[in-house]
Write a protein that binds this DNA or RNA. Structure first.
Length: 423
DNA sequence: TCTGGGGTCCTAGGACCC
DNA sequence: TCTGGGGTCCTAGGACCC
């Protein structure tokens, strides 16, 4: 039986979230910046039309933005994740199996719906999401995830499609793949696109119909071959439904202003560890290994320094205090005075379910007291806001390293004090 | 002045073991 | 000249994703 996948993708997701509470910004150019107001991570089609690229540093295109009255926002992730949850909840009504692929994308399993008018069904999904959440979406349908991705890509670009493209028909696939260049295939990045072009394969169709599978496997590994087979209509990437646990947890930030002192770095890293450990506890895991890194700005003409090192632990832990202790040991060893630090971060790895963690003879695992304390910490912070309770080494002072977020929208949906009044 | 953050998977090669 | 062979596990690094 043929499988049917749909990919639903929110249009200019972060910008659409901002527009929800600013209806005056419909049809206007809007952009959302990365942390620290660094570069654009979301753009409406009006902003794209001005030639502002994805990832463009804000300071480089600020003149254009000012000139055209672009509405620029700092990122407001609590708003975006909240809106994302609402979109996913609506989508779940339309399929027995939903894979939440990212904050703004989901795959739906529509296998067994082949006797329905799928295009009509897709339009119904689109209309319902838009009515329930206010977020505009596009849908692509195909016999594999890769073809559904391509269908979605076309649905977004083509005016005629009106946000929905169905690529179940072989002839339609031929026509579509002819117009898609290799770098626009899901899973083909810059490096592999260059290699494909070197083989004289320029369109998705040429890649799909290339005869030498051995060569593909050799040059593009197993995954490359799987992508090719997906283009042919054979599903190789299944839906992954179960909420999977993270195998590593990273927390890192660029500083608002450069940092020179060890003490400030220690505070920053202690905060990153705190947030990483909170995520670790949320998925009921412990980690056995931590890494710390710090670096100067690669964009600035100053003496450069980048250092990373780690520490393995004898027993698994999710106790913020314990992990901070290890992180500080590593940090103190890495730190060199005299450099202008711009970024630091931590990575927790060797992550295992709490119940399965092997005990060590030489190091005590987290005891009940620790568990209670951490649970209490998490509960207070969930109720009264992140950072209400924290470990002392995170610091209390005005942070030199804190992020710049000068254009942040209010927390319309997640902060009681910032709700929008109805007049 | 000003350039994000957080993930996954695959492979090659080394260490180690019998 | 030739220098055992086969297996497993771990890690670093590359490539890709949103």
């Amino acid at each position: 039986m043929q499988k049917i996948y749909a990919l639903v993708d929110c249009n200019s997701f972060f910008c659409s979230c901002e527009r929800l509470f600013r209806p005056d910004l419909q049809q206007k150019p809007v952009g959302v910046l990365s942390n620290n107001d660094g570069c654009f991570v979301s753009r409406t089609k009006e902003l794209k039309a001005l030639g502002v690229k994805m990832g463009a540093p804000y300071f480089q295109v600020k003149d254009i933005c000012d000139k055209h009255g672009v509405h620029v926002f700092s990122s407001n992730f609590s708003l975006y994740t909240n809106m994302s949850d609402r979109v996913m909840l609506t989508l779940a009504e339309f399929t027995p199996e939903l894979e939440v692929y990212s904050v703004d994308e989901a795959f739906l399993n529509l296998s067994g719906f082949e006797n329905w008018n799928l295009e009509e069904y897709a339009r119904k999904i689109k209309a319902t999401v838009e009515r329930n959440t206010g977020i505009p979406v596009s849908l692509g349908i195909g016999p594999t995830k890769t073809l559904a991705k391509i269908a979605n890509h076309i649905a977004k670009k083509s005016d005629k499609a009106q946000g929905v493209v169905c690529l179940l028909d072989k002839h339609l696939q031929d026509k579509a793949l002819e117009r898609v260049s290799v770098e626009d295939i899901w899973g083909v990045g810059r490096a592999n696109a260059r290699k494909l072009r070197a083989l004289n394969l320029h369109t998705a169709k040429e890649f799909r119909d290339f005869k030498n599978d051995k060569l593909i496997q050799k040059q593009f590994t197993k995954v490359g071959l799987q992508i090719k087979e997906e283009l042919q209509g054979y599903p190789r990437f299944e839906l992954s439904i179960a909420a999977s646990k993270k195998k590593q947890i990273v927390c890192s930030r660029t500083f608002g202003t450069p940092v020179f002192e060890l003490q400030a770095l220690r505070e920053a890293v202690a905060n990153y560890v705190s947030s990483a450990c909170e995520k670790l506890r949320k998925q009921d895991s412990v980690c056995f290994s931590i890494e710390v890194f710090m670096r100067t700005s690669p964009f600035k003409n100053v003496p450069q320094y980048y250092a990373v090192d780690g520490q393995k632990m004898l027993s698994g832990t999710s106790d913020t205090r314990k992990v901070i202790k290890y992180a500080m040991q590593v940090l103190d060893k890495l730190y060199k005075a005299g450099y202008e630090y711009k970024k630091a971060g931590v990575r927790l790895s060797t992550i295992i379910d709490k119940g399965q963690a092997q005990m060590s003879l030489f190091d005590a695992p987290d005891d009940i007291e620790s568990d209670h304390l951490m649970k209490c910490l998490d509960q207070v912070n969930a109720r009264d806001g992140a950072g209400t309770l924290k470990v002392a080494s995170c610091g209390l002072t005005n942070k030199a390293w804190a992020m710049n977020r000068n254009m942040k929208s209010p927390r319309y949906v997640t902060g009681w004090t910032e709700l929008k009044p109805v007049k």
